[in-house]
Design a protein around this nucleic acid. Structure first.
Lengths: 219, 219, 219, 219
DNA sequence: CATGAATGAGCCTTCATTCAT
DNA sequence: CATGAATGAAGGCTCATTCAT
């Protein structure tokens, strides 16, 4: 919805306040989530942490799940923003490998901002009903990868780009999140990590002859 | 020593009858988990599904979490058994690629037995406290891979085998579980899937020169 | 600081409505206690008797014990008020014996208001943790007696006033509560009772020569 | 039931074993009571502490309350034995005061054997239904005192011996138990305590003219 | 719109007691 | 008679949600 040229300032203050309250609630929920985990998350705790009455919480969200869903949505949206921004930074003349490295690196950096929250979102928040949103980043990542593969079809080996994109995305997620959750500080200080992840992904796409696929020589 | 949140089983059943009760409880829990999800799992439901009184549940498990932990443990133990058995089947003269394909294939097959349970274990059961057990299979897989890499050091490119093993394992888990949960039937009927996963893993390990790492020639 | 078994009230009610709810709960608890005894006291019964939802109970009290503790506290506070008020009534020129009689009489009268509750508080409510409050009245009584003894030191025999006060208080409690619980109606209608209790206490304090302490004369 | 002249040794071994089991159970209950208090007393705990199966417990006692009642009974019986034995020791030519002192002293000593148990029996074990047994010692004590007063009617002031005996007994119980529970070690090491208690009791009984009963002279 | 007191369905867990072996 | 697995009524308590003020 376009900004409508900043007319009707009358109602705006109110809407502005509402938007602020919602943001406050989401941030409070994030804090609670990273500090105490999902199990300890109660609507009353959210209200208290946000400095708002429980009644007000229900002014903006119909259920507890809706709050958590909104947190997840915002988290995903931010990650996607990060991604988009980081891709815009990469030189258009970059190697595929350079592109990959850029994306991986940016993703790692983004998740390192609040590893505790990542962990809770990944391991504790139940992915049920509308909450499969956690997979949203993944899907978006798949989209980006698929687009890139399509655009560089001649530089790339796999024919089934749809499948290839999905495998790249899920493999990457598996590698990144595991290490980020396991030992964020190590990840932060180990350039090797991003290098090796890049290596896996790049090699998979490389059009050069497949490794020792043929049965071993004289056997 | 912290109380550990009472996740350990209460008493090891000595009598045969008792052992049977415990097994019945775990299986009932699995059924409920795959049918209704974690949220709907209550201790009374478990007792009812097992055809046992609620008191008997607490004869063997101190808390609800302990039951779930036991289910996870049993699941992991079984997966590890599957893995071990499948590796024993692979010809000792097999190519690295053949070994990889065998392991991937067996893992996929095992998880396809009850994809609904896999999904719930992965996405709904909170991984908290002792419940990090879900990662047990992963760790075991890492161990197997690391051993294999060490044994075939000369056939393999990565120098840091520890890191390599972890990346292979987490990437594989990411790929397999995502697809198994997303569309188990497709996975079951698509040999391509296992092929491509194998391709990624094998290419990463291949000792041949790295793909187009150098900046593109004349540019 | 130990968790203290959660016997402290949860939050001091700020609104009038809340204060009323708390009072209602305590009175309901008292009614249940005197009617059915401690064993039959359940939190749900309290809520029902108070015409309040169980949730409201836990809005103000963290545990069942806390409710009972509050009842005991209120009981003690009221008894102490009675005592204070009754002492203020006694003429300043009164004999020690008259003072004693006044205090005993007032105490008896106060406990006769609800002997059933006294009995349950004395014989059924477990005096554990913070629930040792039942002894509060006693301690307060000891204080009063000690002060009186100190103020009238020259009229009084015992040198160790601390010990004397404690003995007087505990002896009195023993006599009063036993009879009040055993047969409240008899106590109510027997002026003799208060007289005799007074006799015991007064004689103990009397400065006149100790009774026949010496070995019997010519024997 | 008379001992039947020790015939039928046939059945005796069994009965003997039963008697032993019962004793074991009671002692186990006492231990649990003094160690953990009444709240923590469960039938299973009793069985475990006694090294007996829960089934066997119910072979000898119909309910948990019956066990506790038996413990109380045994406790009372022992205290009465102590009392009887101690009275038999007192010289027949003893002063009333000497008799009193002997009884008080013996009672104190007996309760000092296991003050923790005394405390639990007094403050935690619910005195309900048949469990008014705790008052049994008291009643027995009252009987002894009443008999003594009757036997020495001419040495004693109070005319209403029934009431006097009851007051003496309840006052004594109040004083003794309070201090024994409050600080058993102090009681053990303070001869003053028994002296003062004796003083109170003896003065009450003393036939000499009542202390300053008359209104103060010239006022 | 904010507030926060009130609601109540329902869950986890305990423990006295029974009964098949 | 002993054993101990099984039973299940019942109770304490939480927390998402509503609604009167």
């Amino acid at each position: 919805m376009a900004r409508r040229l900043r007319t009707q300032p009358r109602k705006l203050p109110t809407q502005e306040r509402a938007r602020a309250t919602v943001a406050t609630l989401l941030t409070a929920t994030e804090r609670l989530l990273s500090r105490k985990g999902y199990e300890a998350l109660t609507t009353n705790a959210i209200a208290a942490e946000a400095g708002v009455s429980i009644g007000s919480v229900y002014q903006y969200f119909p259920t507890k799940e809706a709050i958590v869903a909104a947190v997840v949505d915002r988290f995903c949206a931010r990650r996607i923003d990060d991604l988009t921004r980081s891709m815009a930074t990469i030189s258009p003349t970059a190697t595929l490998r350079e592109v990959i490295r850029g994306v991986v690196s940016a993703t790692v950096a983004a998740h390192l901002e609040n590893p505790a929250l990542v962990r809770v979102l990944l391991q504790e928040v139940p992915r049920k009903g509308q909450l499969e949103r956690v997979d949203a980043i993944l899907d978006h990542g798949i989209g980006i990868v698929a687009a890139a593969l399509a655009a560089r079809a001649e530089e790339v080996r796999p024919r089934n780009t749809e499948l290839a994109a999905r495998l790249l995305a899920t493999a990457t997620r598996g590698m990144l999140l595991h290490e980020i959750v396991r030992d964020p500080d190590w990840v932060r200080d180990s350039p090797d990590f991003v290098d090796e992840v890049t290596e896996i992904l790049a090699r998979y796409l490389d059009p050069s002859p497949p490794p020792s696929r043929a049965p071993r020589a004289a056997f």
